[in-house]
Design a protein around this nucleic acid. Sequence first.
DNA 1: ATTGCTATGTATAAAAC
DNA 2: TGTTTTATACATAGCAA
Lengths: 166, 166
Amino acid sequence: MGRGKIEIKRIENANNRNVTYTKRRNGLLKKAKEISVLCDAKVSLVIFGNNGKMHEFCSSSTSVPAVLDFYQKQAGKKLWDAKHENICLLTSLHYDFTQNLNNEIERIKKENDNMQIELRHLKGEDITSLPIPDLMRLENALENGLDSIRQRKANGGVQDAQEECM
Amino acid sequence: MGRGKIEIKRIENANNRNVTYTKRRNGLLKKAKEISVLCDAKVSLVIFGNNGKMHEFCSSSTSVPAVLDFYQKQAGKKLWDAKHENICLLTSLHYDFTQNLNNEIERIKKENDNMQIELRHLKGEDITSLPIPDLMRLENALENGLDSIRQRKANGGVQDAQEECM
DNA sequence: ATTGCTATGTATAAAAC
DNA sequence: TGTTTTATACATAGCAA
């Protein structure tokens, strides 16, 4: 879409990600409203962005349950109000457990971002602000890589030929 | 849209309404997935059409209440009618939810692995089994990277010297 | 950070099958 | 009833301010 096609994967740049989020969120909410009106459908849509703010749409004949508002206000401290005390403990345990998973996701995502940056650097992108020592480290790594590749190219052909003879 | 512009109001013809519903529902679900991946947003989307069938999308790591909300609607009754029911539902929800998180972790890890492999290749590691075309692609990337780095080193030094004078 | 622009890619209304 | 096609409207990515 727009000026260029994009791959559907997490947008690395936080600013771009936020701009895209705002635009697409508006688009999604609009479409949700449209289908509910056009087709008389019941739709419930809830979106949380990175900033933690929530946006929602709910077609007129349904109601967003109070539990969602409660969740938003409490930000995960207590998941249920007094009416649902009987299952409070269970859900707290549930929350703690999933929090662990969420932490792992965060950790891996950070690793992920770091690798993306390193990859870009090796490809000569985003290097304008790098200090000289880093540039020299990169140059070195690239030279070594190039040497290895060329060596492999040189006797790789021979090896492949041998394999074909067998 | 399409062959003609339409007004956003209930489509009177039931057949057209259903056709439009199916198309737009698919579009909406797709967009919901896209924003959740692109912008790392948490999205919960539930749609009921006239036929009474339900469709849903829920991003990985979305909020528990949003998921509960979804199940509440699907069951067509309050979650908390009976204690026994609550626990049964929550248990299965817990499973679904953590499964969701685990899936996301898997997805990111896979991305991660791919990047690690590419990084190693660029550094000349693990290249023994690579076919010639891949080697040439790597060689090319490395040469380009090296050019960029060297260019940057050349006028980066000048720039740094200027900065030191200030 | 937000807003507006606009070229381009997508979604989809209507038709045709 | 569903699927495919096509012309058109819409959404939006990349910029610029």
